[in-house]
Write a protein that binds this DNA or RNA. Structure first.
Lengths: 193, 193
DNA sequence: CGACTTTCCGACCCGTTTGTTCTACATAAT
DNA sequence: ATTATGTAGAACAAACGGGTCGGAAAGTCG
């Protein structure tokens, strides 16, 4: 078409939907190409392999989540609300992306290092955001924490801890309950009394 | 185990979950047996083939939906509410079962005749229910229709029409809106003024 | 119109998957 | 002891699926 890069993102967008539903393994090149109304081999003009598409999708999804989170916390003002909305959006996003994880843990752990690479980079960003959130809340006199750095890390650890059971349970109802509980715990441990 | 039939239903229950998520094609015997913590070949002691399991699952699911619907309409009294809840439950069920349809339309239409057989039987039952609903509402002076038989058929046609786009759109939000619209249409065309 | 590049695809390759069979091995029932 | 009831490992043909390749369209430019 007009632009090669443009079509690449179109492939990413399409593949993303299929991957998120079926996981990496069960998604076939045939399906992706069929969804794009193109021949299977045409895809190889834009991506060298299925894995490359997958990596692009994960990268895209990670960036998507990043902007999603940053814009979400901008829409509220109070640090509590920021933190609440941050965790909420993050949880929802991870619940949706659980299939990517199933894909990774499917059989071969080849992608594992790739995911981890993205992950570690993203973790640092997340930590920075959380640190800022805690710090601002602190200076505003809403939170009261000694070391915002380590507090942020503790929160992040908590969030990470929430991911794992998320990918194994299929409950949709108790997600909100759990979120409330988590937030309650965080705030009651963090709020100025 | 104790009872052979008992284990068959256990297989059906387990396979049902996987089928509904991945469809017929993408679900493997390996997966089913793994979920049951049994050897792959052991399943063949209970079912002759993968297709036989699939058929059993579809049959089971159809019966499930039937009782689900009949019990649901028993819980409310007014004909309007009965109709509303009937359509609502039916929609939700079909949305959930969309993967079975994807499985059917996947490639080979071998199951098609089987599904159609269940379907036609079920259609007749549904028509009877709808007819009764319309009829009761009519005698109670809430509805006002000339021929309840043909009105029921019209409603059923409408419901069938709702199925198709349901399987191609992924929206979750506008489902309720659409339901409201449909109900509104039905009631305003059917309600006594 | 050519020449040349970009985009696309059918046909094929070949290692892997998968549905199914078969046989052997337990364990319980008669 | 022998039959009935389950179970699973090994083996296999058929299908699948990722990837390659040569060349056909289709667009671009002079």
């Amino acid at each position: 078409m007009v632009n090669k890069e443009e079509y690449r993102t179109r492939i990413i967008l399409t593949a993303s939907k299929i991957f998120s539903h079926y996981g990496f393994r069960k998604t076939t090149m045939e399906e992706i190409s069929r969804a794009l109304k193109k021949g299977k081999s045409s895809i190889y003009y834009y991506f060298a392999s299925k894995e490359e598409i997958f990596e692009a999708v994960v990268l895209y999804e990670a960036n998507q989540l990043r902007t999603q989170l940053t814009t979400a916390i901008k829409e509220v003002d109070s640090p509590q609300e920021k933190l609440r909305i941050y965790i909420y959006v993050r949880m929802k996003a991870f619940a949706k992306l659980s299939n990517y994880y199933n894909a990774v843990f499917d059989k071969n752990l080849d992608h594992y290092e790739f995911i981890e690479k993205i992950r570690s980079r993203y973790d640092r960003e997340e930590l920075a955001i959380l640190r800022l959130l805690v710090y601002v809340g602190n200076t505003r006199g809403i939170f009261r924490v000694e070391a915002s750095e380590y507090t942020a890390m503790a929160i992040q650890t908590m969030l990470k801890g929430m991911e794992v059971p998320l990918f194994w349970r299929k409950r949709d109802i108790d997600i909100n309950d759990r979120l409330e509980a988590i937030l309650n715990l965080i705030f009651n441990g963090i709020n100025k009394r």
